[in-house]
Design a protein around this nucleic acid. Structure first.
Lengths: 201, 201
DNA sequence: TGCGACTATTGAACATTCGTCAATAGACTG
DNA sequence: CAGTCTATTGACGAATGTTCAATAGTCGCA
C-alpha cells in the first residue's frame, strides 16, 4: 500500500519516533499486543531495525514503559509553594487528572507492570516510590508522618488503593462525584497513618 | 528418557490431573511461562491432548486460575458463628494465612489476573466481589456499613490495599509484626468507610 | 561532478511456540 | 477373539521473536 522508499533518519530521531509510537499504541492495545510486526508496520520500518535499536522485544517494552512512567512523574509533580497539606492535595489532584485524561494508556501501563517481568515491575515500583517519597518530602511537621517500617508499608498500600480507586472510578463513576473521590483519596492517607501508629504502640 | 507407553485415563481423571499440575506449576512459574510444551512434558502427554481437553492455551489458563480462585474462596470462608466483628477478623486472618502459606501461587494468580485478558480479570473481580460481599453479609448492624456506591468503591479499594499489604509484607516483613499487619488490615476497613460516609455528607 | 567511506536499513533465513487433524492404540462388549 | 468406541498421538502449518549478511542513503573530498 504505502510507498517503500527507504527513509533514513538520525539514530536519535528514529529512537524518539519509535518510542513515541510505542507510547501512543499503548493507549489502544495492551503491551503484549504490540508485536514487533505491528510496530514495524505502523512505523513503516522493517522488523530488523527495531532489533538494531532496542536489542529485543522485552527491552523495547521496557523503554516504552520507562518513558510513560517519566511522563507521569513529571506531570504530577507537586507545586513548590504553599503549605504541605495544600501541596499534597494539589499533587493528588494532578494525579487524578492525569489518570482521567490518560486513562487507557495508564491502564496499559499498570497492566504491563503487574503482569510483566522484573524490569517492568521495577519501573512501576520506582514510580510508586517517588509518589510515596513526596509524602515525606512534603511533610514538614504539619502532617506528622514519622518514617517507620509500618508507615512505609501502609503508605505503599494506600498508594495501590488510590490507583485502584481512580481506575475503577474512571471505568464507572456510578454516582460518586469527583469531589467525593478526591476527598476519599486524600483523607484516607492521614487516617491510615494514624491507624498504623496506633497499632504499633 | 521416560518410557512412552501410552497411558489411558478417563476424561475426568485426565482433566483433574492437568488442572492439578497447572496449579502446582503456578507456584513455580508465572502463568505465561506455563507453555503447552512445558505442561505436556511435565504431565507426560502430547500437546494435542491438552488441546483436546481445553481447546486452547488461554482456556486452559482460565481453568487453572478458576481452580486456584475457588481454593482461595473456600479456604477463607468466614465462620458461621460468632458476632459480625469476630467473623470479619477471623475471615481476614484466614486470608492472611492463606497468602502466607500459598505465597508464590497467590502471587502468580494476582499477576495473571492483572496482566491477562478479560476472562482472567473477570475471575479475579469475582473473587474480590465475594470478599467484599462478605463484609455486607457479616454486617448485621454492628459495623454499620451502608450499601452506597461510594462505600462499594472504597471497599474495593480497601480490598486491593489489603492484598498489596499482605503480599509486600510476605516479601519483606522488615520490622512489622504479624499482629501489626493484622490490625492494619482490619482496622482500616471501618476507618475508610467512615471517611467515605463523612465525605458523602 | 564523481568516488569512496560510513552506517542506517533491509529482507531472507532460522527458532520457538500455538493450534489442527487424520491416524493410532488401549479398553470394553458380545 | 473380533469389533467398536474413544483417549491419545505425532506430523504438519501458521504466527511471532531473533539474527545477520547484504543493500542503499548521505556526507566528505578531489
Amino acid at each position: 500500500m504505502t510507498a517503500h522508499t527507504r527513509v533514513r533518519l538520525s539514530p536519535d530521531e528514529r529512537r524518539a519516533q519509535l518510542l513515541d509510537l510505542g507510547v501512543t499504541l499503548l493507549a489502544t492495545r495492551s503491551l503484549d499486543e504490540i508485536s514487533i510486526d505491528v510496530l514495524a508496520e505502523e512505523a513503516g520500518i522493517s522488523r530488523g531495525l527495531l532489533y538494531h535499536y532496542f536489542g529485543n522485544k522485552h527491552a523495547f517494552h521496557e523503554a516504552v514503559v520507562r518513558r510513560a512512567a517519566d511522563d507521569l512523574i513529571a506531570q504530577t509533580a507537586p507545586p513548590t509553594e504553599g503549605d504541605p497539606l495544600e501541596r499534597l492535595q494539589a499533587s493528588m489532584e494532578a494525579y487524578v487528572d492525569y489518570v482521567v485524561t490518560n486513562y487507557a494508556g495508564y491502564r496499559s501501563l499498570v497492566k504491563a507492570a503487574a503482569g510483566g517481568h522484573e524490569g517492568l515491575r521495577a519501573i512501576y515500583d520506582e514510580v510508586q516510590g517517588v509518589l510515596v517519597e513526596r509524602i515525606f518530602a512534603e511533610d514538614e511537621g504539619t502532617l506528622t508522618v514519622p518514617d517507620t517500617p509500618a508507615v512505609r508499608l501502609v503508605l505503599r498500600g494506600w498508594s495501590t488503593m488510590v490507583e485502584e480507586l481512580v481506575l475503577v472510578w474512571c471505568e464507572d463513576a456510578s454516582g460518586v462525584t469527583r469531589e467525593e473521590l478526591h476527598r476519599m483519596v486524600t483523607d484516607s492517607m492521614p487516617a491510615l497513618v494514624a491507624i498504623t501508629l496506633g497499632a504499633g504502640a
